[in-house]
Write a protein that binds this DNA or RNA. Structure first.
Lengths: 181, 264
DNA sequence: ATATTACTTTAAAAAGC
DNA sequence: GCTTTAAAAAGTAATAT
């Protein structure tokens, strides 16, 4: 109904390689690694292409952040695991990757009066003293949107691109119903 | 400001002493208190005769209640003393402090303190009360006088308003005008003019997403210049707790988008 | 006085305190 | 709840030029 262009800004995905990892070995063999066990149990590995960051844990589970597309996220994880396999050849070639969160931005092409939106729209939090965006929690799909006075929007919490887009569209539709747009 | 809030503080402390509410006194089962053994034995370790068991159980149950209400009262007394301290340091009137105590008490009644510090709930209750009473204090100001971080005050405030169904609109810049103007020694005319400017700005959507204190500061600055009671951006920035850059940004936006001529 | 850089908010996973 | 990662939005803050 209301076609909105969504731009994926960031994707968080997780995977579980079936084998335990000796993080100190990885830290010595790879470049672009940060590892402080006292600070954080995960090893931080930054890949240049796709430009992403991976958190690798001794359990063999890992988290990849920063990708701008689902394909890039999966590619980044495969590249990262391939590099890890040069250290530990026992690492399996097959493993599942799960998209955990998608952050997207969009433009409603219309300015918003946030104080009015805060009064009329349900499930919102608006504290301009703290942050310029209005927080709108949508239940269908279950995502959270940040609405700005400029009409720009950030949608986060979706696990599929479709939900991210649907979230913005439903929010826009709701704003329209309440005559807030 | 020193002597005033000190006197206020002493008055409250004396009042507490008169009613005998324990604040920091640790009440263990000493003195007049007597333990009722949780086994069915008397103080000599002898079994309690069956015919007295019922009475024994009643005594035990009664003592449990007393002990619980004792802890509750002790916590409430501590909370109210914290509230007094924070309120007096912020120079808040008694009515606001009482409004905050109402919020705090309902938080207790709804068992919302679990997993949270009393100080944090007190600070958040006070923040909410200030807003409700139209004499807002920023999260920074609340955090300064309480020993609670700004982050936790904000988090607890959101939790309380959600759980207690307290609906408060975002703080209006207008509510900051009287306090800031007073601290700057600005007249009622300047205040009225500032409020007019803010209302025009709100109508034109110039306040969406902007910090209320920054908007109030810029409006006061403009009004002070327009009415010949000019204050420096530095002075206004200091009382409002914002930077000169912020005042300048809001000032430019307001003078450009409202019909006001360049008055710099 | 303006230009950077940095922090505020949102979501989510990982292992452990 | 915290720790770590990434990224957008727009405002504000601190520091550099």
């Amino acid at each position: 109904m209301t076609d909105v262009d969504i731009k994926i800004e960031n994707i968080v995905a997780s995977a579980s390689i079936g084998k335990d990892i000796v993080l100190t070995d990885v830290a010595e063999a790879l470049e672009g690694v940060d590892f402080n066990r006292e600070q954080f149990p995960g090893l931080v590995f930054k890949l240049q292409d796709p430009k992403t960051a991976a958190l690798i844990f001794s359990s063999g589970k890992l988290v990849c952040t920063g990708a701008k597309s689902i394909d890039d996220s999966k590619l980044a994880i495969k590249k990262t695991v391939d590099l890890m396999r040069t250290i530990d050849t026992e690492i399996p070639h097959e493993f599942d990757i799960k998209i955990q969160n998608i952050v997207a931005s969009a433009n409603l092409q219309s300015t918003l009066n946030l104080e009015a939106v805060a009064l009329e729209l349900e499930n919102t939090e608006y504290e301009p003293e703290q942050f310029p965006g209005l927080v709108y929690r949508l239940s269908d799909p279950k995502v959270v949107l940040l609405l700005f006075g400029s009409g720009k929007v950030v949608c986060t919490g979706a696990k599929t691109k479709k939900d991210a887009k649907l979230g913005v569209e439903n929010a826009k539709a709701r704003l329209g119903e309440l005559d807030l747009i | 400001m020193g002597p005033e809030w000190r006197a206020f503080d002493h008055e409250q402390r004396d009042k507490r002493t008169r009613v005998g509410a324990p604040i920091t006194y640790t009440i263990h089962d000493k003195g007049l208190s007597t333990m009722i053994d949780w086994r069915n034995k008397d103080i000599y370790g002898r079994d309690i005769p069956a015919r007295n068991r019922a009475q024994w159980y009643r005594l035990r149950k009664w003592q449990r209640k007393i002990r619980i209400s004792g802890a509750t009262e002790r916590n409430l007394a501590f909370a109210l003393s914290e509230l007094d301290r924070d309120s007096s340091r912020l120079g808040l009137p008694r009515s606001v402090r009482e409004a905050a105590s109402v919020v705090y008490r309902s938080a207790v009644e709804n068992k919302l303190i679990r997993g949270r510090s009393i100080e944090g709930v007190v600070a958040a209750s006070l923040y909410a009360a200030c807003r409700r009473c139209k004499v807002p204090r920023t999260l920074d100001e609340i955090a300064e006088v309480s020993r609670v971080s700004k982050k936790e005050v904000g988090r607890t405030y959101r939790f309380l308003t959600r759980e207690l169904n307290i609906k408060l609109p975002p703080t209006s810049p207008v509510d900051y005008v009287p306090r800031f103007a007073s601290e700057l020694g600005l007249s009622g005319e300047v205040q009225s003019r500032s409020i007019e400017i803010i209302e025009k700005a709100m109508e034109k959507g110039l306040t969406s997403g902007r910090g209320p204190t920054g908007v109030a500061a810029a409006a006061l600055y403009i009004a002070s210049v327009l009415l010949g009671e000019r204050k420096t951006q530095r002075d206004v920035a200091d009382v409002a707790g914002v930077t000169e850059v912020t005042i300048r940004n809001r000032y430019k936006e307001l003078t450009e988008q409202l019909e006001m001529g360049v008055t710099l």
